[in-house]
Simulated assay, not measured.
Amino acid sequence: MRGEPPAWAPGPAQAAALLEEAADLLVLHRDFAAAVERCEAGCDSLGPGPGPGPGESFAEVKCSLCVVGIQALAEMNRWREVLSWVLQYYHVPEHLPPKVLELCILLYSEVREPQAMLEAGGSWLRAHANQRLPELGSLLELYVAQVLLPLGRFEGAEELVRGCAALDGERQLALLGTVCESRRRWARREETLGSSAAEEQQDPAAETVLGMLSQKLLTMLTLLRRALRSMSNHFYLLPYKKMLLATFLLYLVVVRLDPASPTSLPFIYKLVQLFRQAWAAVLSPIHRPPIRD
């Protein structure tokens, strides 16, 4: 676009014609790239200027060309280029027309990139040449609401509001109240985010403890299962004859013999000893139940 020289003769008449053509391309034909090209050609036809001022006859046409160009760039989702694009025609932020500055602030606020206008807007508002412009107060309010407050620059906002002579007492107090309320909301949001972050940090700790307990329980259950399996395998491997002998001796002691007969006592005593030996052979010492005389 800008690499080729414009095909139109320079001058305010040609710039006005290019402005009309760019507006038609933007609104009627929706040809945004062509609209930007016409705006660039129109600004180039006006030549470099010191910036907007009372003695500059081309200021209104140049400003309108930039407004159409900004809208066309935004339509093409090239909003990141907007500030640098207008600065190539006005060179420094302090020379931007109020309408162009307002449109840039609104655009970058809409796309949630207010930091892009932080330095440029502050420079414009503090410039000595702009202090007597009638748009100063409204632009300061817009800059505070759309740039400084969303970025949490509360001290800078208060300083800027108190130092602005374009705001009367009522507007100044109202704007300072807005800054104070925004500061309170910011603090509450930070506190809420801090509490949420603390809860998120506690939750992984609790999950870690529960995980350790679950792992210990799983380990204990695994060991118990292995012990039961080992015991069952041990009983399955016991010799059949030893089991039969233990059962027969128990039958003799309990059923066949009369414990009340005196003649049976020595025999019972020997049988008990024999039973103990058989029982010791059947069960291991760890799992042997207690036997009382």
Score class of each variant (00 low, 15 high):
residue 128 H to G: 13
residue 118 L to Q: 04
residue 255 V to W: 13
residue 99 K to V: 03
residue 232 S to V: 08
residue 84 S to I: 06
residue 245 L to T: 07
residue 102 E to T: 05
residue 97 P to G: 10
residue 37 E to Q: 08
residue 111 V to A: 01
residue 189 R to Y: 14
residue 12 P to A: 15
residue 76 M to T: 05
residue 152 G to V: 02
residue 59 A to C: 09
residue 68 V to G: 04
residue 65 L to W: 02
residue 195 S to F: 07
residue 203 D to L: 07
residue 284 S to Y: 08
residue 157 A to K: 01
residue 14 Q to P: 11
residue 235 F to S: 05
residue 139 L to C: 04
residue 87 L to P: 08
residue 291 I to Q: 06
residue 252 L to W: 13
residue 37 E to V: 03
residue 278 A to T: 10
residue 199 E to A: 11
residue 253 V to M: 15
residue 239 P to I: 03
residue 25 L to R: 02
residue 161 V to I: 02
residue 86 V to T: 06
residue 184 R to P: 06
residue 258 D to Y: 10
residue 261 S to K: 08
residue 91 H to R: 14
residue 284 S to Q: 09
residue 20 E to D: 12
residue 149 L to T: 04
residue 208 T to C: 08
residue 170 E to I: 00
residue 15 A to L: 10
residue 220 M to C: 15
residue 195 S to E: 11
residue 56 E to R: 14
residue 13 A to R: 12
residue 174 A to D: 00
residue 200 E to Y: 07
residue 138 S to C: 02
residue 257 L to R: 10
residue 187 A to W: 05
residue 50 P to L: 11
residue 73 L to E: 05
residue 149 L to S: 01
residue 103 L to Q: 06
residue 232 S to H: 08
residue 4 E to Q: 09
residue 269 Y to R: 15
residue 247 T to R: 08
residue 57 S to T: 14
residue 226 R to N: 15
residue 92 V to C: 11
residue 15 A to Q: 06
residue 183 R to Y: 10
residue 178 T to F: 00
residue 272 V to E: 10
residue 154 F to L: 02
residue 186 W to R: 10
residue 168 D to M: 00
residue 114 P to M: 05
residue 117 M to C: 02
residue 269 Y to Q: 15
residue 7 A to I: 04
residue 263 T to N: 10
residue 24 D to A: 14
residue 214 S to E: 10
residue 203 D to C: 07
residue 147 V to L: 03
residue 42 G to A: 05
residue 86 V to I: 06
residue 281 A to W: 01
residue 61 V to N: 04
residue 85 W to A: 10
residue 99 K to I: 04
residue 115 Q to W: 06
residue 179 V to T: 06
residue 116 A to C: 11
residue 60 E to N: 13
residue 234 H to Q: 12
residue 83 L to E: 12
residue 124 W to K: 09
residue 160 L to P: 03
residue 179 V to D: 01
residue 255 V to F: 15
residue 197 A to D: 07
residue 109 S to W: 00
residue 52 P to C: 13
residue 197 A to L: 07
